[in-house]
Computed example of a mutant assay.
Amino acid sequence: MPSLQNPPQKMMFQLSLRRRGISDQAVLRAMEDVPRDMFVEPADRADAYRDIALGIACGQTISQPFVVAYMTEQLGLQKSHRVLEIGTGSGYQAAVLSRLCSHVVTIERYRTLADRARSRLAQLGYDNVEVMLGDGFDVPAGAGAFDRIIVTAAMEQIPDALAQRLGPEGVLIAPVGPLHSVQTLVRLVRTETGFERKQLVDVRFVPALPGLAREL
């Protein structure tokens, strides 16, 4: 199905991101290139370019565009980077990441979402994204280390096992705080002596839960 985006909506979409402080030109290009209307539910396509979160299957959400752009910008991506995403959802964040790095591994605990995202990303040509059905709290050992890690669901704290998956000078972004309230985006940078931690902005995400979902 072709994208329904129209120029006036896309123009306001980009202007809104710039006004809210997104300045990385590569991130802005990626946000412009990825058709968000193809990642929302059909009934919500008219609202795809509004700066709001929208519901998707399994009680999950696709984050508002500003949050996607902001988290992506804070990662400081390079074309050579290998990125891990926890919480595939619709696949939109992974698609944006894929325009800015060499490879994305994204893990989703809901089979329905994983299957839909895998199919959608393939149909749209995002062939450097690998969608895995799995537990974001228990990343398979064979997945290796990553230059960047992004968590798109709320965690009460960042598991040390996840932080240890960062390579040298790696960066992790995650919403940390109460699962059913307001969280704070936290940026971890791996250094020679440990991790530097910085709090960024307040956000609200659905909870990150361990294990595979019963609702498949």
Rank of each mutant, 00 (worst) to 15 (best):
V96R: 05
R36N: 05
E169C: 12
V104Y: 04
R99F: 12
E215L: 15
L28I: 15
E156G: 10
Y110W: 12
S16P: 10
Y92T: 07
V67W: 13
L209A: 01
A94S: 12
I173T: 08
Y110E: 13
R20Y: 14
I149K: 03
I150F: 06
R214W: 08
R214S: 14
S23C: 13
Q183R: 04
S98T: 08
P7S: 08
Q123C: 08
D33A: 15
P159V: 02
S181D: 14
E85F: 01
P210C: 03
R214E: 12
V67G: 09
R187V: 05
Q164T: 11
R187Q: 07
G125S: 13
G177A: 01
L172A: 02
A114L: 01
H180C: 06
L200E: 09
D147V: 08
G134F: 04
H103R: 15
S23Y: 14
L75A: 04
P140M: 09
F39D: 10
R109C: 00
C101Y: 02
A141Q: 06
V201F: 13
F146H: 01
A43V: 14
S23Q: 12
C58S: 04
L209T: 02
N6G: 03
F13E: 05
R148Q: 13
F39W: 00
M11S: 14
L97Y: 07
F205R: 00
F13I: 00
I173E: 07
L54F: 13
Q25Y: 12
F13R: 04
P175G: 08
S98N: 03
I56G: 00
S90N: 06
M1F: 12
R36T: 06
F39V: 09
A30G: 03
G144Y: 06
V171F: 04
I107T: 06
L17I: 13
I56E: 02
R118V: 11
A94K: 08
H103T: 11
I86S: 07
R19Y: 11
E85G: 05
A94H: 05
L54W: 05
A154S: 03
L77H: 10
F205V: 08
E85P: 04
A114C: 09
Q78C: 14
D33M: 12
V105A: 10
V139H: 03
S23A: 15
P35I: 06
I62W: 03
L84T: 08
E73L: 09
S90I: 07
V68T: 11
A153P: 01
L4W: 08
L100G: 14
Q123E: 08
S90F: 02
I158W: 01
S90H: 13
E108M: 07
A163T: 05
Q164N: 02
L54Y: 08
F195A: 03
S98V: 15
E169P: 07
E85W: 06
L212D: 03
